[in-house]
């Protein structure tokens, strides 16, 4: 029976992550690596629902044993979340923790929608630290990892949006945008420059006496005769400047690192090796 289950998961993973959609999104814990007892699973699911009710953000926990090697843990986490349609509201607010037990062991948090705002890089690091501490304490206490994850996430959700992301906002497609500081200084400098130009122009209107330096008015245009034209090459030099690569799909918005998953939805987050 157990073997069958493994086979089924194997098949599922091989068929493609994109066929996840049969999952029940009310079930927040998906233990494909069989690290939890069913009681633990149920308890975590309850905690998760409390979190969802309290903060109006989804929280999902997944363990996997064998991963499609064409995907990184990060991509797996993003795709699992996106294609199974987790998340609250139009912007799919929420976060997911994936513990990857395949040959390279990773644990990875991915945030979506409003969660990108709430969990900036510093907070993600802090949550990962908390989980890592727990792993150091007891390597096999998987339940504890998830409990720490929920508690730590709750702590920050309660604190609200960090100052680093105050000017970040999530548009209707779930993409984060950084709202720059209102450019008071720029406006002031712009206005100063224009005012100075206006005053200088008006000042020059009052200074009408000018020494004449050319005799263009007295030049007889029809007598201009150019007899000799020679252009000789002298030297050349080339300079180069590095351009910032702006075309990459990952980047930094406000205090959060953001990348776009295969579904086209933006995610924040971070992860570590176990």
């Amino acid at each position: 029976m157990r073997r069958l289950k493994i086979l089924f998961i194997f098949a599922l993973l091989f068929i493609g992550i994109r066929s996840f959609n049969a999952l029940d999104t009310e079930q927040k814990v998906h233990d494909y690596a069989f690290l939890l007892t069913s009681e633990e699973e149920e308890k975590l699911n309850e905690l998760a629902h409390e979190f969802v009710d309290e903060y109006n953000m989804d929280i999902v926990m997944v363990t996997i044993k064998n991963r499609d090697l064409s995907l990184s843990t990060k991509e797996y986490a993003q795709d699992f979340y996106d294609y199974n349609k987790f998340g609250i509201g139009n912007t799919h607010d929420g976060l997911i923790l994936v513990i990857d037990m395949s040959s390279d062991r990773y644990f990875k948090i991915s945030t979506t929608g409003e969660a990108i705002r709430i969990y900036d890089d510093d907070r993600i690091d802090s949550i990962l630290d908390d989980i890592e501490d727990q792993i150091d304490k007891d390597y096999d206490a998987y339940y504890k990892f998830f409990e720490t994850f929920i508690n730590s996430s709750s702590k920050y959700a309660k604190m609200g949006v960090p100052s680093s992301n105050e000017n970040l906002y999530i548009d209707k497609y779930g993409d984060p945008h950084y709202r720059k500081q209102f450019p008071w200084v720029g406006i002031t400098i712009f206005s100063l420059i224009i005012s100075i130009i206006v005053i200088v122009v008006l000042y020059l209107k009052n200074k009408m006496v000018r020494k004449a330096t050319s005799a263009d008015v007295y030049l007889i245009k029809s007598t201009i005769n150019i007899t000799n034209r020679l252009d000789r090459f002298l030297t050349t030099h080339t300079t180069s400047v590095r351009i910032n690569d702006a075309s990459s799909s990952s980047g930094h918005v406000g205090g959060s690192s953001v990348s776009r998953g295969s579904s086209g939805i933006s995610h924040g987050g971070g992860g570590r090796r176990m």
């Binding site: 005769n225 150019i226 000799n228 002298l234 050349t236 400047v241």
Partner: peptide
């Protein structure tokens, strides 16, 4: 950015 420098001569009368 490549800068080519030329020595340009023009002669004439007016």
């Amino acid at each position: 950015t490549k800068t080519d420098t030329f020595l340009v001569t023009r002669g004439g009368n007016m």
